[in-house]
Computed example of a mutant assay.
Amino acid sequence: MLCVRVVLASVCLCAWLTGCAKPPQRLDQSATPTSQQLAYAAQNKVTSPLAVQTANPEIDTKIRTASINNDAGLNFSLRRGLTGRDLTIETQADVKLAAGEVVITFDDGPRPGKTDTILDILDQYNAKATFLMLGQAAQKHPGLVREVAKRGHTVGLHTHTHGDLTKVNLVAALAEIERGRQPLVAALSPINKAPAPFFRFPYLAQNQKLRRAVNNAGLVIMDVQIDSKDYYKASSAEVLQRTLARLDQQGKGIVLFHDIHQRTVDMLPDFLAELKSRGYKVVALVPDQRLQLRSNTLLAQNN
């Protein structure tokens, strides 16, 4: 009886420390674990009677992913806490967020030492993001492009050299976008993936003629509702507070970060933790297959 009380006390303490949403179940000594629970316990070296009886192999299977280290000490609530819906996009009109929904985006990468660390942080919170990449960066680091896609994030377009498209004619602007797309296509083709036809203007510089031309080329423009302004020289704490203040003011939106700044890397864990504590959900943007096919054809025709 003393052993049972010790086990119960240990389990209660662990549940409190890891933030379980439900109180621990009382051990029913008369209950017999199912064959699935016994198999799960043997596989995962579970020895506590309570843990064996309450083990749920189905939930554990859904939570596990190739990118999450299951020995990292992350509790189930943390892994699932930020995961929102997948939003399939075919046109600009499809980019509609409900209250409390956030889309996380990163521009200008990939960059070693920054992008890969950001991927690890996103994995810890099971949050998916959209990376709008430069073609010239993708040429230098194709393996990092693939790693972003392998971990379930969306790879989109941000031109080749980050030039201001309002300074050139429409033909040259579309050619610059296509030039930036080709290194992404080359980087992702070995894993049978392709960049999403999502595009963001460098410097957010645009006009109606440009927007119409980009849309007619089969691309969906990734607008920004919450600009973190992490490109300004500031501390990670300043970036965090500025971004959260704007997000709380609007209650939802597409957030702009850059995966080339250390301040952004340093800020990200606190930002994701705050999203979770404030009840936000991170939405993953996914291109509709029809959009993918249409953009490939139209971009080639425009060049």
Rank of each mutant, 00 (worst) to 15 (best):
A237T: 12
K45T: 09
L174W: 00
L134F: 08
T65P: 04
P23N: 10
G218A: 11
K128P: 08
G152L: 05
P33K: 06
N303E: 04
D60N: 13
N296T: 10
A9F: 12
Q139I: 11
V46L: 14
G143P: 07
G81M: 04
Q241T: 12
T115D: 03
N44I: 04
Y231R: 05
C14V: 15
T18Y: 13
R179V: 02
K233S: 13
F198D: 00
D248A: 11
D28S: 14
T105R: 00
V6S: 12
F198R: 01
V185D: 04
L13A: 15
A194D: 11
E176M: 03
A41K: 05
Q36N: 12
G251R: 04
K209C: 13
G143K: 12
T34C: 11
T105D: 05
L204K: 06
Y280D: 04
Q241A: 13
V95E: 00
V11W: 00
P112Y: 04
N56S: 14
I191E: 03
D248V: 09
L165S: 01
P112T: 08
A194L: 08
Q250G: 10
P197T: 01
F271H: 02
Q182L: 12
N192I: 02
E147C: 09
T297Y: 12
I177N: 00
R85S: 08
A137D: 05
Q43M: 10
L87E: 01
L268S: 01
L165W: 02
Y232S: 13
L82K: 02
R181Q: 05
H162S: 10
L298Y: 01
A186G: 07
N44L: 11
L275K: 05
I226R: 00
D71P: 00
P287F: 00
A137W: 05
K22V: 14
Y232N: 14
G109A: 03
C3G: 13
Q37Y: 06
V255I: 15
S30C: 07
S189I: 03
D259Y: 04
V224C: 14
L97Y: 01
P183Q: 07
L82E: 02
L78Y: 06
N296H: 07
T18P: 00
G143V: 06
M133E: 09
R80G: 02
G251Y: 08
E90R: 04
Q53L: 15
V145P: 03
L132Y: 10
N126H: 15
K140H: 15
V265T: 02
L285Q: 04
A129H: 06
R179T: 04
V52I: 15
W16V: 11
Q292M: 10
P195Y: 02
L219W: 12
V102H: 03
Q43I: 05
Y40P: 02
V168H: 07
D71C: 09
Q53W: 04
F76V: 11
A9C: 14
N192A: 12
W16H: 14
A72V: 02
